[in-house]
């Protein structure tokens, strides 16, 4: 058993600041366990959001030693406990209290993305036929648990506050899952360019690095979408070929 120090963001608005807590930790504990222990032992008003404690609900997103991570998936034996463990709320969203940020902006943005629009059924019984390999590509994107760590680490939102013009990596993954789906017939490239602000992404790959589901966000979702936008708006040769391409 080790006595570890946790430097936790505590309070609301201008009054919020770091507060130090000591607690005994043992092997196998995660940061969320330590936060719960601090709540039980010394600070019952310490607010944090959590649910499944299994890395699947995406509720306990926070910044641990400056890195966006899930508290329930960050084992204490991976951290240097001789130094204070810094625990902060996500910084790309409005702060509510202690470790809780208001992520509702994400839900509003998601509602505005054009929904799935399948082609007409392939068979008279109303079913479709697809290659498994074609579905596999979008299946990766469906692993997203909406923890919004990718949104939090993205500097376009975090540092430049482009919330009005930029949808963020989570919504690019969501759009990619729709746009690359073999049955979908909707065209979202203009929306991606103008409303989702795809061009603001400058490919830092930070979103990919923090994804707890290991979705290759930049290489498999964002860059392929950027290429589709190039096809539609920035590549005169592709547009020329499209004129002569047989319809059907």
């Amino acid at each position: 058993m080790t006595n570890a120090m946790f430097r936790v963001w505590k309070g609301q608005g201008e009054q919020a600041s770091f507060k130090d807590y000591h607690t005994d930790v043992t092997g196998g504990m995660v940061v969320l366990d330590a936060i719960h222990q601090i709540q039980a032992e010394t600070e019952p008003t310490l607010a944090c959001r959590w649910n499944c404690k299994a890395g699947k609900c995406g509720s306990c997103s926070a910044e641990i030693n400056g890195k966006p991570r899930l508290m329930c998936m960050t084992r204490l034996d991976t951290l240097d406990l001789s130094m204070p463990v810094i625990v902060e709320p996500m910084k790309s969203f409005p702060h509510i209290k202690d470790l809780v940020a208001d992520v509702s902006w994400n839900y509003e943005v998601k509602k505005r993305i054009k929904p799935f629009r399948p082609r007409k059924p392939d068979a008279p019984d109303g079913t479709w036929r697809m290659q498994q390999s074609d579905v596999d590509r979008v299946q990766e994107f469906r692993k997203c648990i909406e923890c919004f760590l990718c949104q939090n680490v993205c500097h376009v939102l975090r540092d430049h506050h482009k919330h009005d013009e930029f949808a963020g990596p989570r919504h690019f993954v969501y759009t990619a899952a729709l746009e690359m789906h073999p049955l979908d017939t909707e065209d979202r490239t203009a929306y991606l360019k103008d409303e989702e602000g795809l061009g603001y992404c400058n490919i830092t790959k930070c979103c990919t690095k923090v994804c707890p589901e290991h979705i290759t966000i930049t290489d498999n979702a964002i860059i392929p979408l950027k290429e589709r936008v190039v096809d539609e708006f920035y590549d005169p040769l592709t547009r020329l070929f499209r004129i002569f391409k047989p319809k059907g």
Binding site: A16, P89, K91, S92, F93, P94, H95, W105, E108, V109, R112, H161, H163, D164, E165
Partner: peptide
């Protein structure tokens, strides 16, 4: 603009 107020800390 999406008209969503996001005040950041």
């Amino acid at each position: 603009s999406r008209g969503i107020d996001v005040r950041l800390p």
